[in-house]
């Protein structure tokens, strides 16, 4: 039957308005109503204050605030720190995911559970604990200090805290992809004469590259915004070990709300750009990978 035929037949019925399609499941009005009200009050309205505050600010003042040398130094530390932490986490995160998926050894399950520790431990606790470990009198900080390497109250300390908070993101995004990689692909590579190293770089790495990048970006975004664990270990010296969120905090404590807002806008744009990239990669992955379903769980840990 053609479309015209259909249209002609229903034409007789078209005199009265069609019934609206109705989902037989109950509660749509109530649930969407609560959801929208909640999101409106809790997210949209508060976020819009940033827009209003920024709009009310003269451009010259805005620019002066975000381009002050102290701010530039803070961006630099946040950015380079988050980037380095992301890279370190990619290496160790992949290693951990590999070991957890491929090998069976005593304590594997415990190790697996421990990976989530940085998600679960409050950032303030992480901050003081890391300071105690890496500080001048700590079990690792002391020997390093004797060798002339200062970690706590220096830029290295910022890096240590950023590695700590970002580690689970890489492990938890790479793990399911490695788990889902079927052995026959590797075996095929092996029968074709490829060695283990060659197989890893030619077969396994390309397969997990999107997940690795997602993990990197999530770890990076988390490190960029991190506050609690860093403020204890960094020493907070303006221009040297002061991260951007701390600078915002300082301005808030001085009741310089406009200055804080201006810096917040810079940070928000940076993190939204990162999340946007992650999402576009995930959409691509979704089309050909079943392991996508595990990503939301990882993401729900973000900042946790």
């Amino acid at each position: 039957m053609t479309m015209e035929h259909f249209a002609a037949l229903t034409g007789a019925q078209a005199e009265t308005a069609p019934r609206k399609a109705k989902n037989p499941l109950p509660g749509f009005g109530l649930s969407i109503g609560y959801t929208l009200t909640y999101l409106g009050i809790l997210v949209l309205v508060p976020l819009s204050t940033i827009v209003f505050k920024t709009a009310a600010m003269p451009w010259r003042e805005f620019w002066a605030t975000i381009s002050a040398s102290r701010a530039i130094a803070a961006y630099g530390l946040s950015f380079v720190g988050a980037l380095s932490a992301g890279a370190i986490n990619c290496i160790f995160g992949t290693l951990l995911a590999w070991v957890l998926v491929r090998y069976r050894f005593l304590g594997r399950k415990l190790l697996d559970a421990l990976i989530d520790l940085p998600f679960a431990v409050p950032t303030a606790v992480a901050g003081i604990a890391l300071t105690a470990v890496w500080g001048p009198h700590g079990p690792i900080g002391e020997p390093l200090n004797n060798m002339g390497v200062q970690v706590a109250y220096a830029r290295l300390g910022v890096l240590v805290a950023m590695v700590f908070v970002g580690l689970p993101f890489v492990v938890r995004t790479v793990q399911p992809v490695l788990d889902g990689l079927s052995a026959d692909v590797e075996e095929a590579a092996a029968t074709l004469g490829a060695g283990r190293v060659r197989t890893f770089f030619a077969v396994i790495l390309p397969h997990m590259a999107p997940a690795l990048f997602t993990g990197f970006a999530l770890s990076f975004a988390r490190a960029l915004g991190e506050y609690g664990s860093i403020v204890f270990i960094s020493g907070n010296m303006p221009g040297r070990t002061e991260i951007t969120p701390l600078l915002i905090m300082t301005k808030l404590e001085q009741f310089d709300y406009r200055g804080a807002t201006a810096l917040a806008v810079v940070m928000l744009l940076a993190s939204f750009a990162v999340l946007f990239m992650v999402n576009s990669i995930q959409w691509k992955r979704k089309s050909h990978s079943k392991s996508f379903a595990t990503v939301p769980r990882v993401r729900s840990f973000l900042k946790g």
Partner: peptide
């Protein structure tokens, strides 16, 4: 809230 630094979450 996942994408925003906790400091900014408080600030708004």
């Amino acid at each position: 809230p996942f994408a925003v630094s906790p400091v900014i979450s408080g600030m708004i």
